[in-house]
Every structure is written in structure tokens, then in C-alpha cells.
């Protein structure tokens, strides 16, 4: 499984780090460590974030999308953020970072 750092396109590191501050609503880990972010592209002053969710019935989809958008719009140079949701490949525990897995284990959630 590709580590999230391998998905980082040059010039977007800053935005990945910003999303490390956006927490999953159900667990105290970031959306990046949860493996929800599949890619970030920057074109001029716009960002396109490709992301997924742990299930199609996730009740927090709007919440997470808004948190991602709001955090990225705090970057001075960013005027718009588009979020694209993909369901392929389907999210699995292997999408989580090692840091994310360790945090989940600490909170008593592991497989």
C-alpha cells in the first residue's frame, strides 16, 4: 500500500500538512492518517482534493468535507477548494498511516 507521502505532488506538501490538523469526527486522528485523502492538486489559486470515506453510509461526510474545505481556505493564496469523492479503490484499514494505526491502537481500536 502506498504511503500518503508518496501521493504528495510537489508543491502541495503544505496542504497535506494542513489536513493533518483536520480530525476525523469519530476518532482523534487526522483525515490524512485515517487514509481518507487520496490526492491534492493545485492549479493557480484552486485546490482539488480527491478523497474517500470509510463507508458509503458515513454520517459525517458533509461534516468532514466542510472541515477539509475550511482548513484549506485558510491558506492565503487559496480561493477555492473542490472536493471529489471516489469509492475506488474502496477504503480499507491498509489506507491508514502507521501513525494512524498506532493512535487507534492506543484508543483501543485495532484489528
Amino acid at each position: 500500500m502506498m504511503s500518503y507521502k508518496e501521493k504528495v505532488i510537489e508543491g502541495t506538501e503544505k496542504y497535506w500538512n494542513m489536513l493533518k490538523e483536520v480530525a476525523d469526527p469519530e476518532f482523534p486522528i487526522s483525515v490524512v492518517d485515517m487514509g481518507l485523502i487520496r490526492g491534492i492538486e493545485k492549479r493557480n489559486n484552486s485546490l482539488t482534493v480527491t478523497m474517500t470515506f470509510t463507508s458509503t453510509g458515513c454520517g459525517c461526510m458533509d461534516w468532514i468535507e466542510n472541515d477539509v474545505r475550511e482548513r484549506l481556505l485558510q491558506a492565503e493564496e487559496i480561493e477555492s477548494v473542490e472536493i471529489k469523492v471516489t469509492w475506488d479503490p474502496a477504503w480499507t484499514i491498509n489506507d491508514m498511516t502507521e501513525e494512524g494505526k498506532n493512535k487507534m491502537k492506543y484508543w483501543g481500536v485495532s484489528s
Binding site: 474517500t52 463507508s55 458509503t56 471516489t86 475506488d88 477504503w91
Partner: peptide
Amino acid sequence: LNLQFSKMMIE
């Protein structure tokens, strides 16, 4: 259709 439905098929 994979982009839309692959997770749904697993569920």
C-alpha cells in the same frame, strides 16, 4: 462505474 460503486459492492 467502479469509481461510484466498488465500495457499495463490498458493503
